[in-house]
Nucleic acid binder design. Sequence first.
RNA 1: GGCCCCAUCGUCUAGUCUGGCCUAGGACACCAGGUUUUCAUCCUGGCGACAGGGGUUCAAAUCCCCUUGGGGUCACCA
Length: 485
Amino acid sequence: MTTRVRFAPSPTGSLHIGGARTALFNWAFARHTGGRFVLRVEDTDPERSKPEHETAILEGLRWLGLDWDEGPDVGGPFGPYRQSERFDRYRDVAASLAAHSYRCYCSAERLTELREAQKAAGETPRYDGRCRDLAAAEGDSHVLRFRVPEGETSLDDLIRGRVTFSNAEVDDWIMVRADGSPTYNFVVVCDDSAMEITHVLRGEEHLTNTPKQVLLYRALGIEPPAFAHFPLMLGKDKKKLSKRTGDTALQDYRDKGFPPEAVVNFLALQGWALDDKTDVFSTEELVRNFDVGGVSKAGAVFDPDKFLWMAGEYVRADDVERLADRCAPHLVAAGRATADELAAGGARREWYLNAVRLVQERISLYSELPGKLAWVFAPDDEVAYDEKAVANARKHDGAVLADYLDWLRPRLAGGVDAAALRDATRAWVKERGLKFPALFQPLRCALTGEAGGPDLFDAMALLGADGSLARIERGIVRLGGEASG
RNA sequence: GGCCCCAUCGUCUAGUCUGGCCUAGGACACCAGGUUUUCAUCCUGGCGACAGGGGUUCAAAUCCCCUUGGGGUCACCA
């Protein structure tokens, strides 16, 4: 039997990071078992469903590399299934369920009052069954309720084992609204059975929906699929991850410059582990080893620190060409360069690659590149000096930098050879009986204005001979005033 | 509140189903060293957990019960 799973987002907002994990686990399960991954948009609520949300969700899935295998159109690439396009099917199914459902003429107002009264009395809110056995119609406006039988209903959850609910706890839930539109629990079962879904893998918040759905499968005479409910992703407050405790939209992480591979890796770690010691693993390894039964039962608190570390792991390990391509949009957005000159084959490509090499191990996110490279793009006479860099520089004899400039100038006539210059400079410092910081701290301030950063000779190579000399000249003036002996 | 789920370092987790290999392993964060012209990277070390109480057993993080704690859910939303 080939496995078939689905991810069924509702286009009522952007793709939630927790939803992304659910999608990932479904996708990984399908790929691991050689099955099919179906995408189904649950847009039965016309009030809240928006096309732009669907677009954003699809983009998010593509960004993570979670491809789906089919859709309503022929050939491909496939669009997702949309429930709004399948209302006819639901009508037919509802019609076939006469023996297991009944028309309820209670007004929304009456139900609200009933609920409030029950709550006030400290009772569990539930439908009182007023219309369960009505002899005659009470008007045109009615909803269709599922007639929950006596007894109990259980499911064998792949993660939690057998879970049993008393049917008395399951309300006679509404299948079809007064306006004729079907509700969630109803369409889910219609579609999961029609699409021959074999494994329903979803978040734990759906666990209490499951008895309703199982009961409907039975009424339909269909064997329910296997179920697995993933633990929730939690915020610092241990409650379901929400906007209160941080960014919850997948889009936010894309905008911030997280590598998608790192997002996949980190998300996989929320409830699942490859083994007892591996944190960093590829999507291929995830697919090769993923097992739903191995997903943990307890909720996972989302840790932004570890997420950032994970991003850095991927950035540092990345191929320079690809890293450059992924950072380029951020540099362009910051107004530092044009996309064309940074692109492969562009006028400044080689120079840009060297710049990226200089900061690759100093950034964790693509968006951090412009900031780390700000000194490179600054005009030679307007480098912003960091307070600490200036303090470091002024601890030393100001004459050293001037002497060095005299020594350096003729040596840069043919351009900057970083390796050779580094060796020669070290020798120069030693010959003078100086310590390295005596030269390097003022030099670093003059060239970059920063207290830390990349190797100074690589920096000079990037700035070029003229730029480097100009910055040192300017630095001598700017640092000179209050330099101590 | 009813029902349901859950419970190993601050956090993510391995180990739990199939009790002994666990004086509980890894990672993030934090702290201390080392490397480096600085920052970062990298390396080494440290800190740090089986929620509590009863059982069962020769033996329990692992099985059972209770307590406590946390979460989810109770719509003509999904």
